[in-house]
Amino acid sequence: MLTILTPTYNRIDTLPRLYQSLLAQRNRNFEWLIVDDGSTDDTASWVAALEHEADFPIRLIRQDNGGKHVALNTGVVAAHGDWVFIVDSDDLLTNDATQVVADALGNIAGQQSVVGLCFRRGDLNGRLLGRECHDMPMPFASTPTRVGRMVQGDLAYIFHRDTMALLPFPVISGEKFVPELYIWNKISDQGQIWFYLDRIVYWCEYLDDGYTRNFAQHLKRHPRGFLLFYWAQIAREPHWLGKIKAMVRSTQCLIYCLCKTSHGGRE
C-alpha cells in the first residue's frame, strides 16, 4: 500500500481540495496520513468527520508545532505503506496520480536498489513547473540535486518508507525548518531514484505564507537548518557555480547563527 503523507498547519481552507483529488483517484490502494503540526483551526474535527465518509483509510496524528520536517519524521514512523508519497496540504493530485505511481512501482518490483521515484509538478492552471525534458529517456536514475538543476522546478517524490526511516530530519532546538533536499539527497546515497520527467502527477499552489515565497525570512529564522543543507551542497553541486553559491549561502547562515547567539536565540 501507498501512504500519502500530508503534514499540515492551519490549512483547513485548502485540505478539502486535496481530499477531493484523493476521492477522484482511480487506484484506491492507499491511505491518507495527515500529521497536524499543532494547528489552531478545525483541522482535527474536519478529519474526524471524513474517517466515516471516505472509502480509503484516513488517519490523523496530532503533535506540538515543530515544523514540517518534524511532521514528516512523525508520519514516516507511523506510515502503513511501503512507499511514502509526500503531498503538501495546499496542493492536490492529478486524477491518475496513484495509478501512475502504482504502475511505476510495479516496474521496479524486486529491484531492491531503487529507493525512490520522482515525477513532475504543475501549477493549478495546468502548466508544467520548470523546463521540459523531451529529449531524455524515461525513466532514468539520478540525484535530486542534479535533476533539480536540470528542470529548474519543484518535483514530486515518492520514497521507500524504510529508507526514509533510516534518515530522519534533524531536529534543531529553536528552529522549525530543514530543507527537504538535504534528506532527499541522503536518500539517493542509499540507492537509485528513478525520474519520470515526462509525467505530471501533482498540482501545486504557492501561498503567500508558504516557504517558497518567504525564503529570505526562513533563512534568517532557521540558519542552522539551512547551514546543514548548504554545507552538504558544496560537495554535491555538479558545477563550480553551484558550489560557490552554496559557499556564499553557508557563510550567510553562519552570520545569522552568530546573530541569533548574540541575541540569546531571538530573531
Rank of each mutant, 00 (worst) to 15 (best):
G148I: 07
P57Y: 06
T3S: 14
L258W: 08
H52W: 10
Q233D: 07
H80Y: 02
L2W: 03
L219D: 01
L117A: 07
T40R: 11
N73W: 03
Q252L: 06
R236T: 02
Y256S: 10
I158C: 06
G81Y: 00
S188I: 01
L155C: 11
N125K: 13
F229L: 04
L167C: 10
V87F: 00
H222K: 05
G242N: 00
T40Q: 13
L93S: 05
S173F: 05
H134P: 11
T6R: 11
C259Q: 13
D103E: 14
G225R: 07
L258K: 13
G116W: 00
N10Y: 06
L128Q: 06
A54D: 01
D37E: 02
I61P: 02
Y157G: 10
A246Y: 01
I158G: 02
T43I: 12
D154I: 11
P223Q: 04
Q25N: 07
N125P: 00
A44S: 15
R120T: 04
L92P: 01
R131F: 05
D13S: 15
W32C: 04
R121Y: 01
H134Q: 12
N125G: 13
Q192W: 02
F226Y: 15
R59F: 00
H239D: 15
E205D: 14
L207Q: 09
R11M: 07
I193H: 05
F159S: 06
S89H: 02
R266Y: 09
T94V: 08
D13P: 07
M136E: 15
W231V: 12
Q112C: 11
Y211M: 13
E180R: 09
D96I: 01
E51S: 15
V147N: 11
L129S: 08
L228W: 05
I193V: 15
R59I: 03
N65I: 01
T98F: 03
W32A: 06
Y196G: 12
R236E: 10
D96M: 01
D82L: 09
V201S: 10
F85T: 00
W240G: 04
D42Y: 04
N125R: 07
V248W: 08
Q111S: 03
S188Q: 03
L258P: 05
M138E: 14
R199Y: 04
S188P: 03
L92M: 10
I200V: 14
L50F: 08
G130D: 04
D209Y: 07
F140L: 10
D96H: 09
G67Y: 04
Q20R: 12
F169Y: 15
I200A: 00
F226S: 08
Y157R: 11
L22M: 08
N73Y: 02
F169K: 08
L18F: 02
N95C: 04
I86V: 14
L207M: 06
M1E: 06
Y206W: 12
K245A: 01
L155Y: 03
V77A: 15
G116S: 03
D198L: 10
D96P: 08
Q217N: 06
H218Q: 14
A102N: 08
Y9K: 13
A104M: 01
R146A: 15
T14W: 09
S142D: 15
M247P: 05
R120P: 02
E132N: 15
D36N: 15
A97D: 03
N185A: 07
R199I: 12
C204M: 10
L254N: 08
R224V: 00
H69C: 09
H218Y: 14
M136P: 04
I108H: 07
M247E: 01
A109G: 05
F169M: 11
